[in-house]
């Protein structure tokens, strides 16, 4: 029988739909009778959604500017090469 600790170990697999049929079913049956695990799964799912909602698009502007400079330099070299060969 699946215990709460077993469920906690595979909780992310359950949330992501990575468990096979029988294993997923045993989690569902456990959740029907265990309020604490229902709260745990709900909170872990909320944590996962929180991460998705949290902006990942932050990068240091100075770092981005350095990339812009390197790219501009490389584009200019490429353009000059192109015009030399014409």
């Amino acid at each position: 029988m699946l215990m709460c600790r077993d469920l906690a170990e595979i909780a992310s697999d359950y949330i992501d739909g990575e468990l096979n049929g029988p294993r997923s079913l045993s989690v569902k049956m456990h959740l029907m009778i265990c309020k604490d695990c229902r709260t745990f799964i709900g909170n872990l799912r909320a944590s996962s959604n929180l991460l998705s909602a949290h902006s990942s698009g932050k990068a240091d502007e100075e770092f981005l500017r350095r990339i812009d400079e390197r790219v501009a330099e490389a584009l200019s070299v490429r353009k000059n090469k192109g015009s030399d060969s014409e």
């Binding site: 215990m3 600790r5 604490d36 745990f40 909170n43």
Partner: peptide, 15 residues
């Protein structure tokens, strides 16, 4: 393998 210290609160709000 049962909870000794279960999660107390539910995260009610959406992400």
């Amino acid at each position: 393998g049962r909870w000794d210290l279960p999660p107390k609160l539910q995260f009610h709000d959406s992400a």
